[in-house]
Design a binder for these strands. Structure first.
Lengths: 111, 111
DNA sequence: CAAATATACCTTGACAGGCGATGTATTATG
DNA sequence: CATAATACATCGCCTGTCAAGGTATATTTG
């Protein structure tokens, strides 16, 4: 893998919520769009993705329903809830804080 | 805890290596300086810190020696190796890549 | 038309890193 | 002299990631 997934760890939920802020969507599509956006440098592994869906649904951040496709494989669509939106905003704040902190901590300091 | 530790996960090694790039140092001091730099918003827990030292030493990124304090508690000093320096540079690169990717993935996109 | 590929979902079990809890020993301080 | 600070260390739990495996349908291709 090109980039250590530990660096992304903890952002999975935020990534999913961000995607759902733009409208209902289903797992396979979400994953594909992530790969596209990062030019294949990163992808959520399926197991990770579906684990995250369970986690987020249990937490009340998203809800799900089956699509009524007439053709092709069935799709489970996810919808972000109000709690999900609030959580997203909060996670974005966390990211900004963490980013600054990390930057401060890993850059070389001139004495 | 103020910030989810998963956001920091994967940066522990980089933070330690960064600190040691500035010269030999010992665990307690390193931890204190992290707390100071982040105004207490973040601290490496001791267990995390010492686990990381073991990991980094095993990987050949750092080496250690006991200080010869005449007074006070004994200190185990850590020194960064050439491999450690290379690793640090590589990790910094990873961070920049990851940062961009995360930014791209968690921001709201306007359609 | 059979085989391969793409779409789409899901679960299990192993693994690794973070960390709470707990322990040791020494020195400084009120 | 008790408490806090300095300084190190380990054990076992928890959580998130993911390789591996599975299901089912639709489309493409040789």
């Amino acid at each position: 893998m090109s980039i250590a997934s530990d660096l992304i760890r903890g952002h999975t939920d935020t990534i999913i919520l961000a995607k759902l802020m733009g409208g209902d969507n289903y797992g396979y599509e979400i994953n594909k769009s992530i790969q596209q956006k990062t030019q294949g440098k990163y992808e959520l592994k399926e197991a990770t993705l579906y684990t995250a869906f369970r986690r987020l649904e249990q937490a009340g951040c998203i809800s799900s329903y089956w699509g009524d496709e007439q053709t092709g494989a069935r799709r489970r669509y996810y919808s972000i809830t109000q709690l999900g939106r609030d959580t997203y905003n909060s996670l974005i704040g966390d990211w900004r804080t963490a980013k600054e902190m990390i930057e401060k901590l890993i850059e070389l300091e001139e004495k």
